[in-house]
Amino acid sequence: MEAAHRRVAADLAQQIAAGFWAPGDQLPSRASLARHYGVHEQTVRLAMILLRSRGLIEGEQRNRLRVAHPPVMRTLIRPDADWPHQTEMTSSSPCRATDELADRLGVPPGVTLQHQVVECMDPGGRSAMLVSSWRRGRRRPHTSFAVELGVVALDAGQAHALGLTVDTPAYRLVRTRLDASGQAVETADLILPMDRWTIRL
């Protein structure tokens, strides 16, 4: 017998596919859906987790969820280019250089770095990419950069910002900006959800 939350999720997915709700529409509350389906609110919560993992809904678990807009696929060609749309700095604070960051920047471990997290929005105002950057001291100009490509599973903070579930796979570009002498002046992690990006370097 099919689990109740899968049955609820399947029915909601079918309604979304049929256009009963359009992208951006708010879904009924968990309590309302629980009454409609004759199930416990926890069952509806599990159904919503399943729908989020499939990319059909988006938003905060504690708030009313919305039907997700189909992701727009973008191709990243220039990882050092300025973002052409809206950005929002979500945090800015000093931190201590870990061994990895010290190696990337060529500084002693434990030295104080400036850390910033910037959320890059698509033209519709949805989060498309996260950029976490670290530098020592004031911002300095760069003349070149190096980049390494890998894959990570989103942590809770990244998933929250991108409207995805924890452990969703994402590209991680480690970009290090260099001055004319080849000294690192800044390093950054660019986190790009795999369902929204292709990479061409």
Rank of each mutant, 00 (worst) to 15 (best):
I57A: 02
V107A: 03
H36G: 09
E88H: 07
V147T: 11
T143L: 01
V67I: 06
D80N: 03
G163K: 11
D167G: 10
D25N: 09
R177P: 14
Q86G: 14
T168D: 07
S93I: 13
V174L: 04
G157E: 03
Q15T: 10
P108F: 03
D195R: 02
A184C: 02
T165F: 08
S29A: 14
L105V: 11
G59I: 09
T90H: 04
Q116Y: 10
P71V: 11
E148T: 15
D82P: 14
Q114I: 11
R196L: 01
T198C: 13
E148F: 06
G157L: 08
R6E: 12
V72M: 08
V118F: 00
Q158M: 13
S127L: 09
S91R: 12
V117H: 01
W21H: 02
E186A: 01
L164Q: 03
R52G: 00
I16T: 06
V152P: 13
S91L: 04
Q61L: 14
L65E: 10
G125K: 04
Q15P: 12
V151E: 11
H36L: 14
L113C: 03
A128H: 07
N63F: 14
V151Y: 11
R52T: 04
D103T: 10
A17W: 03
Q158Y: 01
A3I: 08
S181L: 08
G137R: 04
E60M: 09
G106P: 15
T98E: 03
E58D: 05
H69F: 06
G106K: 14
L173G: 07
A159D: 00
A188T: 11
T43H: 00
H69M: 01
A97R: 03
F145Y: 14
E58C: 08
I191Y: 01
L105F: 01
Q14V: 13
D122M: 02
S32L: 15
R62D: 14
N63E: 15
E100Y: 10
R200F: 14
A180F: 06
E100N: 10
R74M: 09
A68P: 09
I49V: 15
P123G: 03
A153D: 07
L130I: 06
D195V: 06
V185A: 04
G137C: 06
R45E: 13
G125I: 08
Q26D: 12
L76Q: 06
V39K: 13
R172S: 04
Q114A: 10
R74H: 07
V8I: 06
R74P: 04
L27A: 08
L113G: 05
G163C: 05
S144N: 11
Q26M: 12
R135Y: 05
E88M: 13
R175P: 07
A128S: 10
A18D: 15
I199C: 09
V8C: 12
R30Y: 09
A159V: 00
T87Y: 00
A188I: 13
Q158F: 06
A81H: 09
A146L: 11
S29G: 12
R104A: 03
T112R: 15
M129W: 05
L105T: 14
I49P: 12
I191N: 01
